Simulated scan of single mutants.
Amino acid sequence: MLQQFYPQVPHSYTFELNKDMHLAAAHYIDDERAGNCQNMHGHTYFINITIAGDELDELGFLVDFKRLKQIVHKRYDHTLLNQHAEFSNRPPTTEEVSRQIGEAVQAELNTLANKPVCLQVVVRETPTSYVVFRPKQGDSHA
Rank of each mutant, 00 (worst) to 15 (best):
Q4L: 15
Q4D: 14
Q4M: 14
F5L: 13
F5E: 14
P7W: 11
Q8A: 13
H11T: 08
Y13R: 13
T14H: 12
F15L: 08
L17S: 09
L17I: 11
K19P: 01
M21D: 07
L23V: 12
A25G: 07
H27Q: 10
H27T: 09
I29F: 13
I29N: 08
D31M: 04
D31V: 07
R33V: 09
A34K: 11
G35N: 11
G35S: 09
N39K: 12
H41E: 05
H41G: 04
H41W: 06
H41D: 07
H43K: 14
Y45K: 01
F46E: 13
F46A: 13
N48E: 09
A52E: 12
A52P: 13
A52R: 14
G53V: 04
D57C: 11
L62F: 07
L68W: 02
L68S: 02
K69L: 02
V72E: 00
H73R: 08
R75K: 15
R75P: 04
Y76D: 01
T79W: 02
T79G: 02
T79P: 01
L80E: 11
Q83S: 05
H84F: 05
A85L: 12
F87D: 02
F87G: 05
N89Q: 12
P91H: 06
P91I: 01
E95K: 10
E96G: 01
E96V: 10
V97S: 02
S98Y: 01
S98K: 00
S98C: 06
R99D: 06
E103Q: 10
E103M: 07
E103C: 05
A104Q: 02
A107G: 14
A107I: 09
L109R: 02
L109Y: 02
N110Q: 15
T111Q: 14
L112R: 15
A113V: 15
V117K: 11
Q120K: 12
V121E: 06
V122N: 02
V122G: 00
V122M: 03
E125H: 01
P127F: 05
S129R: 01
V131N: 08
V131Q: 10
F133S: 14
R134V: 08
R134A: 13
P135A: 08
P135G: 10
K136N: 08
Q137C: 04
G138F: 03
D139R: 03
S140D: 07
S140C: 09
S140T: 08
H141P: 00
